[in-house]
């Protein structure tokens, strides 16, 4: 893969949240939400990021739009998030907020909860034109035209621009959120579980809309979800996360039909499928719960629940290795088995 194709290259990203306690607010612990992950997103590509709650997938998304520092002033970010905008490479992990502001329009975000992600005191027109006011020099009538055009693109009537979010249903609100993200022609849109709060019949509409928009405008998506069947459908490549680490990364159909890492295998077999004839005996049911990122097991994070765990797993954190072409897995035991 040539570097020119790459839109963003994440290298060894670590996001740690210190916890303070006691009278003097001393640091008592660290939540290692993201603990050294690397991946890249190409232009016009959709990357799926899957994992259970607490695995750090949302934090990765927020790190990519560089809003973590402003939301949590104490956060510690390490590693690099290098964007490549028209040949100019920018590291979002290091830029100061003032310098970042110029590039904000290039990376936008769609949120999970359509009820919380729109300011209830602003009309739809105000919500969508806010990024335009910040990043373009449009006058009022141009802005009005643009808002109408955007609403039309996401399947809403332009007359609805002067309504408030509470007058819309969940699916329509999510469309408004998409229009806001689309307003500044971004190169990358981070979709943080965009459909999991919606009704089943509305989910399909929103997914169709997102695929259509990608076709038309050619932006990249980072699609964060826990619903694997949706991710498999929309994503080109999938990264599976567990406790702040990527355990498997590769072409979506490869990961979906031929998972190598024991966690991916268990996760995929646990996903319910809408097929009553499916053989159920093959299902791997994992024991126990996800450990909290506050006290991660040493070495491989998955070893406490892993059916293949060996003594050596506790010693060092496994790194992603290319097991097959374009298919990276972070498990030395699987590699040994496949080799032997």
């Amino acid at each position: 893969m040539s570097d020119k194709q790459k839109l963003v290259d994440v290298k060894n990203l670590k996001v740690h949240f210190p916890l303070f306690g006691g009278v003097l607010s001393r640091r008592v612990a660290t939540v290692k939400a993201v603990d050294g992950i690397s991946f890249s997103i190409k232009r016009k590509e959709t990357i799926g990021l899957v994992g259970e709650s607490g695995c750090g997938k949302t934090t990765v998304g927020r790190a990519l739009v560089a809003i973590l520092r402003q939301l949590y002033p104490d956060v510690e970010i390490d590693g690099s998030i290098t964007y490549n905008f028209n040949g100019k490479s920018v590291d979002f992990a290091r830029l100061k907020p003032r310098e970042l502001r110029k590039y904000r329009s290039k990376v936008q975000m769609i949120f999970q909860d359509p009820f919380a992600s729109l300011n209830p005191r602003m009309t739809v027109a105000q919500i969508i034109s806010e990024p335009l006011q910040l990043h373009t020099k449009m006058n009022d009538s141009e802005m009005k035209d643009r808002v109408g055009w955007l609403l039309d693109k996401v399947g809403l009537q332009p007359e609805q621009a002067y309504r408030y979010p509470h007058e819309f249903s969940g699916g329509q609100r999510q469309r408004v959120g998409i229009a806001r993200a689309l307003a500044t022609n971004p190169d990358l849109i981070i979709c943080d579980e965009p459909v999991s709060a919606l009704d089943v019949s509305i989910q399909a509409q929103v997914i169709n809309l997102m695929m259509d928009l990608q076709e038309e405008f050619g932006m990249s998506y980072l699609f964060i979800a826990h619903d694997l069947s949706v991710v498999e459908h929309i994503a080109d490549r999938i990264a599976v996360m567990y406790l702040g680490n990527v355990v498997e990364f590769g072409e979506s159909s490869t990961v979906y039909y031929d998972p190598r890492h024991p966690y991916s295998k268990a996760l995929l077999s646990a996903v319910p499928r809408p097929d009553p004839h499916r053989q159920r005996e093959s299902r791997i049911v994992l024991e126990g719960d996800v450990p909290t990122p506050l006290n991660k097991p040493s070495g491989c994070g998955f070893r406490t629940r892993c059916p293949l765990a060996e003594k050596s797993c506790a010693e060092e954190i496994p790194v992603l290795e290319e097991h097959a072409l374009e298919h990276w897995v972070a498990c030395p035991i699987v590699k040994e088995k496949n080799a032997g």
Partner: peptide, 16 residues
Amino acid sequence: SIPTPELQKKARLQAI
């Protein structure tokens, strides 16, 4: 509305 393995990748879903 549910994507199934039989469906071609990135094909439009039959949404209501």
